[in-house]
Amino acid sequence: MLTKISVIVPVLNEEECLPELLNSLQRFSGIEIIISDGGSSDRSLEICSRHPVKMATGSAGRGMQLNRGAQLATAPILLFLHADSQLETIVVEQVLEAIEKGYHWGCATMDFDERTPFYRVLAFFSNLRARCWKSCYGDQAIWCRKDIFLNTGGFPDIPLMEDLALSHHLRSKYPSQVVSGRVTSSARRFRAGGLWATLIKMQVLKMLYLLGANPKRLADYYQQWWRVSL
């Protein structure tokens, strides 16, 4: 079977999410699954060994992990998927159609695994941002032609906001499309940290990054906040 899309998943201690994700991806046709592990200490590697996936291993850092996964990819199109997300099968077909129409990168339409008004509104504005400002986040299943991704250097080697940096670089040079197929993202960060507190802190981090703050300092703040939230 011709491999059309390489799905790359960064992993760090995701034993709770991986069984559902890998079982769902095996229903897709024309894809290869690449797991890029950042040094998991739980059962993540054991779980992956039971499935037909390629493995990349190395130091932690989502951007670096995704870049390592991209180096193993054999398909002409890359799709980056978080371990706690679920992807509609139609997304693969829609991405291929978008490529044929001349679009070089983009993302899927995002939902959350909780459907309360808060999450519906949040998903609406996330999708609006991606469509109007060409700014896609990692939990929106970013996809890109492999040659373009590699030629632009992939994700920058920064500990936070690597997805925002990549999309801002691509949008200045290449046409993008948000396909209508859905990626369902986990709301676990909001459940752990509180709805409004998490939203506000994420927006503050984004604004500080756009104003030129050091991504390393922002990552330290993020990790400190995440430990407090847990």
Rank of each mutant, 00 (worst) to 15 (best):
N151K: 15
W143N: 02
I99T: 03
T109D: 08
C136S: 14
K146L: 08
T116C: 09
T109K: 07
E97A: 12
C136P: 01
G138R: 03
I99S: 01
Y137M: 10
D147W: 06
D157R: 10
C132G: 02
T89M: 14
K101D: 11
E114N: 04
I148W: 02
D84P: 02
V121K: 06
T116S: 14
C132N: 06
W133A: 15
F118K: 06
C132M: 11
R131V: 10
L150G: 01
H104A: 14
Y137C: 06
N127K: 04
T109Q: 07
Q86E: 11
R129G: 00
R115E: 14
A98R: 05
Q86P: 00
A130W: 02
C144A: 14
V91F: 08
T109V: 08
Q94Y: 06
V121G: 01
N127Y: 05
F149P: 00
S85G: 06
V95E: 03
R145I: 00
V92I: 15
D111N: 12
C136T: 13
K134C: 07
W133Y: 15
A141H: 02
E114P: 00
Q94E: 15
I90Q: 07
Y137T: 11
G106V: 02
C144R: 04
E93C: 04
V92Q: 04
V121I: 07
P156H: 07
R131W: 08
N127V: 07
S85Q: 05
I148A: 01
W143T: 05
V91D: 02
G106S: 08
K146V: 04
L128M: 13
L87Y: 12
R145E: 13
